[in-house]
Write a protein that binds this DNA or RNA. Structure first.
Lengths: 347, 347
DNA sequence: CTGAAAGCGCTTACAG
DNA sequence: CTGAAAGCGCTTACAG
């Protein structure tokens, strides 16, 4: 390469164009340039067109942070989920992203890995950025309380920690769980285990309530040893499921309270060569794609995370528009995708 | 409710605290308050502690947008992916989110749904927000060109459109594809189909090259009718696969160029009652969780999207630190997860 | 050791 | 119909 050649970078302007440069180039004031560019306030049409033309030529992109600082209102929302690698949360984020874009909002996303501390930290970052609102799948009551105190509209989705304090969009966990257990009881199952992550959050509590409710409605006594808490890790849960299925009197059916637990049970059954549904019936809460790829397919409560995300963002925008409207909890119902993983218990 | 009671909202301060209020409450200037809070510049220790105490008491959260405006540097990055519902992209985003948090950066995320127009729009929004850099799984050459022109550091990940123009992190598609096809040839397969989304992007082009290369190396002639372009939609691809498998002389093995196509082939084979691997061997590029849940498991090239995301963000930060360092392409190798979906061709 | 002043890039009443 | 001025909430040389 010849020396003395201009560096390739030399071709580009050193800095990004500001409204001042656009105004100067157009021979108008910054006020006029601003009016021309935003379309707010009057400016003579020919002037408007010239300013816009010049802005385009300079590759001018208005600084959104400066605009938001001035207007004291931001065009972005914060989203806080527990685990993007879980298709449920990924679908939720996808639905929110989609709708945010349609409304010209950008989305700040954080994956808190299920940690309450990380969740609050991420919420603080959102507050610092002055987001217009936050959607969260909470892992403790703190996030929503904190955000509410900071005057930031917040919608809890999937789980609800701050009932009555902030808006929420959740599915009708209890009913869906009841329906699915009812079907197992109808098939003749009596030893139906519930493999669940935990039982204090609304998701766990309500799915457990549905499970219990179905037994009560059928007048079937319930064996508490069949409710096993298996946490959030697939491998740990798989070991729990393995133990459960190795008992002297194993369950004839298992209700897995989420897709991770269903995967754990599925793997455990395979390890033990326990054919589904001949020796074991399996039902899952949360329908993800592998459940229709395996043989037999897994009967599952289908939640439609994308729709859940869309409902959450709709609620958030309503809240931003009407800060003083009464707090609302939106309850979405779920359907049951019946597949081949259930059958009458072995004789 | 009694009238005359203060509205619940009345309890909270009308506005968020600013540094001015912190300074006033502490009886110091805004300059001093700023120095105390940021830790930059000197301030007497007792004063510092008092200011911080008061800030905490007021629930003061500094306005990051104002800070960034002043410092002309932002602490967030933009991430642009094609489809969050696809576990590959979700894993990528998860890896990036993780690392961003560790470095105290926030992540703006947009799902462009594979549309070049949406992708450029989203990039414009990132420019407006003055992100420190962007990571993108590009669907056209425009995004990176545009961002480069706007002086925003950009890293292309998974696919590479702007070779030599911006940094990239990709996997060694050609080698991985060659290895996997080589294994099929070794098993005795000759009619090996390639089901691919498209063949112009680096991913498609290189996987095709690996496929071709393996045939050439083995001296086996290649039947071009066995390369079928199936797009991005599972259902459309399933129909293509169905047609392929229904030919008079169907392939004895299929190499699906990504996880969506593998799912399509899997479903088509099930519809046709074509046992895998007895009648059809299947190999996938991209290993996602269902592939180890089905029986037989699907042999797949494993890319580790989380690691890919982490590599991309590392590269991005290096670029932010050294804007004039030579452009770099990082090539990650991939492993093959051998499972039960391959066998010698039927006699 | 601290404070007054300037300025980041915008928008918006207001004056003319 | 347009421009000068003020100000959003910060930070940072600089003066004292």
């Amino acid at each position: 390469m010849k020396s003395g050649m201009p560096a390739p970078d030399g071709i580009q302007p050193a800095r990004r164009a500001t409204i001042r440069e656009v105004a100067d180039a157009a021979g108008v004031s910054r006020s006029t340039a601003s009016r021309a560019l935003t379309g707010r306030g009057y400016v003579a049409p020919p002037v408007r067109d010239r300013v816009r033309e010049i802005a385009r030529g300079l590759g001018y992109v208005p600084d959104a942070t400066a605009r938001h600082l001035r207007q004291q209102a931001s065009q972005s929302i914060g989203v806080l989920v527990s685990d993007l690698s879980n298709p449920f949360y990924a679908g939720l984020a996808a639905g929110i992203s989609q709708q945010a874009r349609k409304r010209q909002y950008t989305m700040m996303l954080a994956d808190d890995g299920g940690s309450p501390e990380v969740e609050v930290e991420a919420a603080e970052a959102f507050v610092a950025l002055r987001v217009a609102g936050v959607i969260v799948t909470p892992v403790s009551a703190e996030v929503s309380t904190y955000l509410a105190r900071q005057q930031i509209p917040v919608v809890e989705v999937d789980r609800q920690f701050s009932v009555g304090v902030c808006d929420a969009v959740v599915v009708d966990n209890e009913n869906a769980a009841r329906r699915v257990i009812h079907q197992l009881l109808d098939l003749g199952h009596r030893r139906i285990a519930l493999v669940i992550d935990e039982m204090h959050w609304t998701t766990g509590r309500d799915r457990l309530a549905g499970y219990r409710g179905a037994f009560a409605a059928a007048g079937v006594p319930l064996d508490d040893s069949l409710v096993v808490t298996a946490g959030w890790d697939v491998d740990a849960a798989r070991i729990e499921a393995h133990k459960l299925l190795s008992r002297a009197e194993p369950p004839t059916a298992i209700f897995a309270a989420n897709n991770v637990l269903a995967e754990a049970v599925w793997r455990a059954a395979a390890e033990l060569n326990m054919p589904i549904p001949e020796r074991l019936s399996l039902v899952s809460f949360d329908d993800v794609s592998w459940m229709s790829l395996v043989r037999p397919g897994v009967t599952a409560v289908a939640q439609d995370p994308v729709a859940l995300g869309e409902a959450a963002i709709s609620q958030l925008f309503e809240r931003i528009q009407s800060p003083h409207a009464p707090v609302r909890t939106v309850l979405l119902s779920a359907t049951v995708a019946a597949r081949g993983s259930t059958a009458p218990p072995p004789a």
